[in-house]
Write a protein that binds this DNA or RNA. Structure first.
Lengths: 178, 178
DNA sequence: TATCCATGTGTACGCTAGTACACATGGGAT
DNA sequence: ATCCCATGTGTACTAGCGTACACATGGATA
């Protein structure tokens, strides 16, 4: 308490929400758990985010921006000389390297759109943004298929526990590119 | 009350759980909500399923069996003369035709494995079972990639709201088959 | 037939949740 | 300098949750 006039309050709540989802999953996300994690009173989280959906929207949007940066940082994706399938497979390796918490948070919020209409536009933003980026190297149809395949491969790894296999990913991504 | 000696009690609880997930999502699944839906006392759901994870495992397994039947019912999948990509794309059309509730339940429970280790073996059963089935027509690597791509395509439809496009699915599935 | 125990029933407890609201504070518009 | 209102704080209410447990019942087994 006694931390009045906190211009970053809202942002710190979003950061806290992402940490909570990383530690306890969406099922553990509540106004109270986020308030505790952000070290702000309960009334503060409910003031800045009327509903948990609002908070999840903000958290997913922020997570999306982070992953969009990892895509853009891979400059070779834009280079017409580079092997697109290999670059994407390597991007997957980067995502799965080390701590997977960030990726799990991203997917958990992304997949929550299945039952939460409020999240759907944000989920669509991610899929479309990624596809638009890939469309610079191929046609839009192929780009959309690549996003779908990458989603499917990542999910199989996250859901079933099989290890990520960059060679396999590169091979099948290359087939979609044709 | 007063419905003693109910040999199908356990099964009716599973059916009720699937209906609850269809109506309210996993977030609305509780021992109490399932008990009310199945018209049994609270103590009965906690007796047959010690934890909600146990109940979700049973529900996902049953949902998986239902979808496995829709795959096997499509006998043309086994016919070496048939167009595998076209058959799979048509299977997708079948899944998305009419009421999507069943498909949403299937995916919601399947995706819940992301945060619930108890569900992972069951999720893996589905992915592997489907892949084994497809491996009768192609090699195992291609089969796994087809499952991943189908998952990705279905998710894009369910998450972002774009309509299912059978022609697009057939085209990109064919590329993976090569 | 006698007994046992898997199954069924009803209730209570402690906890956490979203929500609502009254009040405090001080930056910025006037 | 004054005042307003966006923001911050503390607390109470009600509802629903998992859990635990005591007790009832009658098929299955010996």
């Amino acid at each position: 308490m006694a931390r009045r006039y906190d211009p970053e309050r809202r942002q710190r709540i979003i950061d806290a929400a992402i940490r909570v989802v990383g530690e306890k999953g969406i099922a553990g996300l509540s106004h109270r758990s986020v308030a505790a994690e952000a070290d702000v009173p309960l009334g503060s989280t409910t003031y800045h985010f009327k509903t948990l959906d609002d908070l999840m929207v903000a958290a997913l949007r922020q997570a999306n921006e982070g992953y969009a940066r990892t895509v853009l940082a891979r400059g070779a994706l834009q280079d017409p000389e580079s092997d697109l399938a290999a670059e994407l497979a390597a991007l997957g390796s980067e995502w799965f390297a080390g701590d997977r918490t960030g990726l799990e948070v991203e997917y958990e919020l992304y997949l929550a759109a299945l039952r939460r209409p409020a999240l759907r536009p944000v989920a669509a933003e991610w899929a479309e943004g990624f596809a638009d980026c890939l469309a610079l190297r191929t046609d839009p149809v192929t780009a959309r298929a690549l996003v779908a395949l990458i989603d499917g491969i990542c999910l199989q790894v996250l859901l079933t526990g099989v290890p990520y296999d960059e060679g396999y990913a590169r091979e099948v991504l290359a087939r979609v590119i044709g």
